[in-house]
């Protein structure tokens, strides 16, 4: 799949932003006043900034409001609703903390739950697609949720939780890559089922429909980055998990925490780039590619 920058920025930043909102909603840290304002400002910049970035990949962004209508069947529509509800709930909760110095616990918990729902619905946009076997796994939402909560814990200064979640993220990430590498073969879709022309080895794509490229090839058959997948996985894991862990072990303090969080976000961005670039769409079979 085409690793479009807008979608990578969106899932990385919004994931961290809503992750931070989860922790804030739980009252961890239990901040009020100006400090609370700082935390909420960071969370909203990340969450809303990511959501805005996601509209850049739309062909007709001016009609984006219509995406709220089909929540009955569409995960993308559900994501729209959960994000708006989560942002409104957390805005009320945040206002109480910042301006009144009071913590409305129930509202915070509801906002936290909705923030988890946002990340889950985002992940389901990808996980629901049978056409992309590497995404069509239960581990996809698990990975999105653990990375989001980890990023949130780092930003919220929850160091003990962050350490445990970093370890968990590393395990989930590696498991996702390992299972993902087998997903296409395990999906049962081959050139033989795509064409009905006999055993897989006996059929080959002889000639594409056009000499030039097309939307399908540009969107679904991205092969450039796959060559360096192993190196990029090492880079992603080092940045997202290993370095933040080392930094947290070395010491506390705002500077170390900020460095660990930035490092983690950079690693998640690399992982997200791989998430798209490595994902094979079954339409590639028709073109003799994957």
């Amino acid at each position: 799949m085409n690793p479009a920058p807008s979608v990578i920025i969106f899932t990385t930043l919004s994931g961290a932003g809503f992750g931070l909102l989860v922790w804030l909603g739980l009252g961890l840290p239990g901040v009020t006043g100006l400090t609370a304002f700082g935390f909420f400002a960071i969370a909203y910049l990340l969450a809303v900034g990511g959501l805005l970035a996601s509209t850049f990949h739309l062909g007709r962004p001016e009609r984006a409001i219509r995406a709220f209508t089909q929540w009955r069947t569409s995960w993308l529509s559900r994501e729209g609703w959960t994000s708006v509800i989560a942002l409104i709930l957390m805005a009320g909760y945040g206002a109480g903390l910042v301006f009144l110095g009071t913590r409305w616990t129930a509202l915070g918990l509801a906002g936290a739950a909705m923030s988890v729902a946002v990340v889950f619905t985002t992940s389901m946009i990808y996980a629901q697609l049978r056409t992309v076997p590497r995404w069509n796994m239960a581990l996809t939402p698990v990975m999105f949720l653990t990375l989001s909560l980890t990023g949130g814990a780092l930003l919220a200064g929850q160091m003990a939780a962050a350490k445990a979640l970093l370890l968990l993220s590393g395990i989930v990430q590696i498991a996702y890559w390992k299972l993902g590498d087998r997903a296409l073969a395990g999906s049962g879709t081959t050139l033989a089922t795509a064409t009905g022309l006999g055993a897989p080895r006996a059929v080959r794509a002889f000639e594409p429909p056009h000499t030039g490229t097309n939307y399908l090839l540009e969107e679904f058959v991205h092969v450039v980055g796959r060559r360096h997948a192993l190196k990029l996985r090492a880079i992603a894991l080092t940045l997202a998990v290993v370095l933040p862990l080392v930094l947290l072990m070395l010491g506390a303090g705002h500077l170390v925490a900020a460095l660990a969080a930035l490092c983690h976000l950079a690693g998640v961005a690399v992982s997200r780039w791989l998430f798209f670039a490595q994902a094979e769409h079954v339409v590639g079979f028709y073109y003799g590619k994957r």
Binding site: M1, H57, L58, G59, R60, P61, R63, A64, R66, A67, S74, L76, I125, Q128, L129, R130, T131, V132, T189, N214, Y215, L216, E219, F220, H281, V282, V283, Y286
Partner: peptide, 17 residues
């Protein structure tokens, strides 16, 4: 249509452009 492209992602046949 907002041109989000998700339907083309969901189609296994490459029928949507």
């Amino acid at each position: 249509c907002i041109g989000c492209g998700l339907c083309a992602w969901a189609c296994p046949y490459g029928a949507r452009e």
